[in-house]
C-alpha cells in the first residue's frame, strides 16, 4: 500500500461522496433550476475527481493521459449541457416563479441567436 494508492483511493472516495450529494440534491431540490444547479456543479467535480483518482491508480503514461483527457471532456461538456437545458427551459417558461423582482437573463436572450 504505497502513498500513490492511498492518494488515488482518497480521490475516488471523495468523488463518490460528491456523486451521492448530487443524487440527494436532484431528489430534494424543489424545481428545475436548482436541480440543474446540483447536477452541474457537484457532478462535474465528482467526475473529475474520480477520473483523476483512476489516472493516479493506473500510473502509466499513455493510459493516464487518456483518462485525464476524459476528465477534461467532462469539464467542458457537463456545464455546457446544463447551460443548454437551463436556457431551453427558461425560453419555454417552464417552472418560472410566480413573482420575482429582477429578471437579469431576459436582456441576454436575443443577443446571441
Amino acid at each position: 500500500m504505497t502513498l500513490r494508492l492511498i492518494i488515488s483511493y482518497f480521490l475516488m472516495i471523495t468523488g463518490s461522496a460528491f456523486a451521492i450529494v448530487t443524487v440527494l440534491g436532484l431528489l430534494r431540490f424543489p424545481d428545475v433550476y436548482t436541480r440543474i444547479h446540483a447536477g452541474a456543479v457537484v457532478l462535474t467535480i465528482s467526475a473529475v475527481l474520480v477520473t483523476m483518482g483512476t489516472a493516479i491508480y493506473v500510473w502509466d503514461l499513455f493510459l493516464s493521459a487518456k483518462i485525464v483527457l476524459i476528465g477534461i471532456f467532462f469539464l467542458f461538456s457537463n456545464p455546457m449541457a446544463t447551460h443548454a437545458i437551463a436556457r431551453a427551459s427558461y425560453k419555454r417558461q417552464i417552472a418560472l416563479p410566480e413573482e420575482y423582482e429582477i429578471d437579469a437573463y431576459s436582456d441576454y436572450l436575443g443577443r446571441d441567436a
Partner: peptide, 15 residues
C-alpha cells in the same frame, strides 16, 4: 443553440 454551446462544441468536435 446559444453562443456558449456553439463555441464549446467548436473546441470539442475535432477531439
Amino acid at each position: 443553440l446559444s453562443f456558449i454551446v456553439k463555441r464549446a462544441l467548436g473546441i470539442m468536435t475535432p477531439f
